[in-house]
Design a protein around this nucleic acid. Structure first.
Length: 425
RNA sequence: GUGGGUGUGGCCUAGCGGUUAGGGCGUCAGGUUGUGGCCCUGAAGAUCGGGGGUUCGAAUCCCCUCACCCACCCCA
């Protein structure tokens, strides 16, 4: 019988990968706190309506990408496909509108989308997301972008990442703009790709984003949504740009960035590595001024972004970024004989209390094999404990690097040796 | 959902109709009596993703299927 495997599109994070992951997570949380954002954890499962109503029941997202199930009590639940709606649900549920606004939140965790896996796209994915709920200030948009870029910088990315921003106004703006696009594309419909012809019916804004027709004259000459913004929206966008300029943040304005869902408003942005194609966006954000209301809360403007950890890790590996040192214990014990094994375990306990990491060698191996293991481990010291040492209440401390001589140490003195046995600062 | 590529011990991989299916890494054990990382020797470990066919004979050819990868679609 075939052994079970991890579900399609879902992966194990092995010890050798977890080092990088922990670095990313620690850095993300550190940066978020630098901006005074605080962690929120929401359930991995939500009432299905949290995601279905917000995304719109007819969208592809809901139709095929949400993991839906009924629990034993008959409740309709969904594995969370994203974090923003869940954070908003919590904001409403806990009356956070009566806290000082905006409420600044961040989260880091797994999300689930029933997609066909490919490079940088998985069914279980991890995101770090940051939300500022309860403000329509363009300064908040800029703060989130700044935070996001600071994170990438702290992770070691250079300034070659491309930030593209756009404003998509309100749902009404987009409805009007769709009509303009319709009129623009109708004469060219015949010469556009099949895909674009389909998009003409389903989501005309996405024709602008078509890979196939990227060079098509009709796409190149298409009107820009920026010319159809309301005066207030245009002013807001100008303010966002001014804040970015003040922060010294470079950006490209890309009127082809669109978001289909109604609750999006005004600013949207994406960050991607230069020259990359395919599933390359490593993080995207935007304003969702209508979402809280859709979820049954008070009309509340908000802005946020989320960034994919797998894609960050992918890019970091390509660039050779992240922690380089393999993790190794400070000390490996080499027990010889039964009494030695008992004494070695006791010595290990003393060292650990002094914050020295110790791999306690298990008895039964030849000394040669045990020493070989200690050498391969990368540890700084081997601690040899045989019956003779056990008898005398001592251990032999042998440096594994450098040419320092080994010495015999009283067990009682091990604790005070403390810091001298570790690399750590 | 659509299209393409790949599938040999834990990992990388040779073999492409007749081989005891070979190698490297890793693992484990030895290299004399209590001392390592290199080196040497040995061992365990694959029936070649799964199923069905063609053939005297298949890891090697054909069909189906599954998985992975890549691209499209979509991307909250």
């Amino acid at each position: 019988m075939a052994s079970p495997r991890a579900p399609r599109g879902m992966h194990d994070t092995l010890p050798e990968d977890s080092e990088l992951w922990r670095f990313i997570r620690d850095t993300a949380e550190r940066v978020a706190r630098l901006y005074d954002y605080r962690a929120i954890e929401t359930p991995i499962v939500e009432d299905a309506s949290v995601f279905l109503h917000t995304a719109g029941d007819e969208s592809d997202i809901v139709q095929k990408e949400v993991y839906l199930f009924e629990d034993r009590g008959g409740d309709r639940l969904a594995l969370r496909p994203e974090g923003t709606a869940a954070a908003c649900r919590a904001y409403i549920e806990h009356g956070m509108s009566s806290r000082p606004q905006p409420v600044r939140l961040f989260y880091f965790g797994p999300f689930f989308r029933y997609d066909r896996p490919q490079a940088g796209r998985y069914r279980q994915l991890h995101q770090f997301g940051v939300e500022a709920i309860g403000t329509d200030s363009p300064a908040a948009d800029a703060e989130l972008i700044d935070l996001q870029l600071t994170l990438y910088r702290e992770l070691g990315f250079g300034d070659d990442l491309v930030l593209r921003i756009n404003s998509i106004g309100t749902a009404e703006t987009r409805r009007n703009f769709a009509k303009v696009l319709e009129a623009h594309f109708i004469p060219h419909l015949e010469t556009l790709s099949r895909d674009s012809q389909r998009r003409f019916e389903t989501n005309i804004l996405r024709i602008l984003d078509s890979k196939e027709d990227a060079g098509h004259v009709a796409v190149l000459s298409a009107p820009s949504i920026l010319d159809y913004l309301s005066p207030e929206d245009a002013e807001h966008f100008e303010a966002v740009k001014a804040h970015l300029d003040a922060l010294g943040i470079k950006y490209e304005i890309d009127p082809r960035i669109v978001r289909g869902l109604d609750y999006y408003a005004r600013t949207v942005w994406e960050v991607e590595p230069p020259g990359a194609g395919g599933q390359s966006t490593i993080g995207a954000g935007g304003r969702y001024d209508g979402l809280i209301e859709v979820l049954g809360g008070p009309a509340t403007p908000a802005v946020g972004f989320a960034t994919g950890i797998e894609r960050i890790a992918l890019n970091m590996r390509e660039r050779g970024l992240g922690p380089t040192e393999e993790s190794a214990p400070d000390v490996v014990t080499i027990p010889l004989g039964d009494r030695g094994a008992a004494a070695a375990a006791q010595a290990a306990a003393i060292l650990r209390r002094a914050d020295i990491s110790v791999r306690n060698g298990l008895p039964g191996r030849s000394m040669k094999a045990a020493m070989r293991g200690a050498g391969v481990s990368g540890a700084r010291y081997a601690l040899i404990v045989g019956d003779a040492e056990a008898e005398a209440g001592t251990v032999v401390l042998k440096p594994l690097r450098g040419d320092e001589e080994q010495r015999t140490v009283a067990v009682a003195d091990l604790g005070s040796l403390g810091p001298s046995l570790t690399d750590r600062a």
